[in-house]
Design a protein around this nucleic acid. Structure first.
Lengths: 186, 186
DNA sequence: TCAATTAGATTACGGGGATAATCTAAACTT
DNA sequence: AAGTTTAGATTATCCCCGTAATCTAATTGA
């Protein structure tokens, strides 16, 4: 209890945003502030010293998740020495892996937050960030002879469906089928 | 208040299931029993005379939504006199229409409930129904030279993304792009 | 017709949720 | 070293949720 150094406080705040971005992806924006703070080793009362409201955190956490996504893509591109095709193929394989299917919390926010975005009508910051994120992703995925939008739809659809049918053999089949389709036409 | 004829009671029950199946698709399974019953012109107290629990209703409403989907597909097939290709193309165009994007409540449950299914771990009835529904849909969509799974992923992904980016021009672009892609390769 | 049944309304209860005021002790500041 | 500031803990308020007991009036059926 009591006070904490400014550095510690800032670090705590950062951890709250990061944890929120993971929990929101995993469980949706319905998780309570109390549970979120507990996951950070803090109590829920302290929340409002750092954030104006839960909505404000949602905006911030969404932005954070998309920044991570961009970084990951860029890192992948660098590792392939700027060879876009190779980087794309690697990303597709990772995207449609069982690890990604099972790791929603650390996974693609476009997939994890899609339904929440569709439902949270409002003109929130989060929605703007999301739309831009989709646009960027599609552009990044485009090839000379295929539209990035369609590729993203197929990837996204496969991941979402694989997650929704997890536990059935169909889930794995969806991943391998989509992977094959996206490899053949790349 | 008071009692109502058996016929009326049965009709009321039916309406609760139908309304629930629409509201769940539109807003997720989080809507309260009270709001649901109010939408049916009833009070929330009466609910437990007809259903064992909210979970039981979720199962029933999910099943209902999928029965509707099957019926719609079969009706489309009949209208095309059994010509599967033509029926498929019509369904794809409807599926990727702005009307379907904007009509989540009456739309495809595979798309509307995907995230909820992924999150509601349990081995509920609803999950079994959902998985079977995906399987059926994919089979129905398959052509001689393309897998139904991939086509479903693309359709589903496009619909979900169009909904999530609604309000931006990107939303329409996603629909038309996916429609074109699914027409070219059919 | 009249007693037994029951659909739906009222009301109550226990649990959580978001938010906010207040408290407290540690970190800053001078 | 003393006073001021403030991060986080405690606690409180108010609202909504699922569930269930109780109530009540209409239907059923003998």
């Amino acid at each position: 209890m009591g006070r904490v150094s400014q550095a510690q406080a800032q670090e705590n705040r950062r951890r709250v945003v990061e944890t929120a971005s993971r929990l929101f992806r995993e469980q949706g924006a319905h998780i309570s502030v109390a549970d979120l703070m507990k996951a950070c080793g803090l109590t829920h009362g302290g929340f409002y010293k750092q954030f104006a409201s839960k909505d404000a955190l949602i905006d911030e956490a969404t932005t954070h998740a998309f920044e991570e996504l961009t970084q990951l893509r860029d890192a992948g591109l660098e590792q392939h020495a700027g060879q876009r095709d190779a980087a794309q193929q690697t990303l597709i394989d990772t995207y449609l892996s069982t690890e990604h299917r099972d790791g929603t919390a650390d996974g693609c926010p476009v997939a994890a937050l899609a339904t929440d975005m569709a439902r949270g009508l409002g003109d929130r910051d989060a929605h703007r960030v999301y739309t831009e994120g989709v646009s960027d992703f599609a552009e990044w995925l485009s090839t000379e002879d295929q539209d990035g939008i369609t590729r993203l739809c197929t990837m996204l659809g496969a991941l979402v469906l694989a997650r929704a049918t997890k536990g059935s053999p169909l889930s794995e089949e969806i991943l391998t089928t989509a992977r094959a389709a996206l490899t053949a036409t790349s």
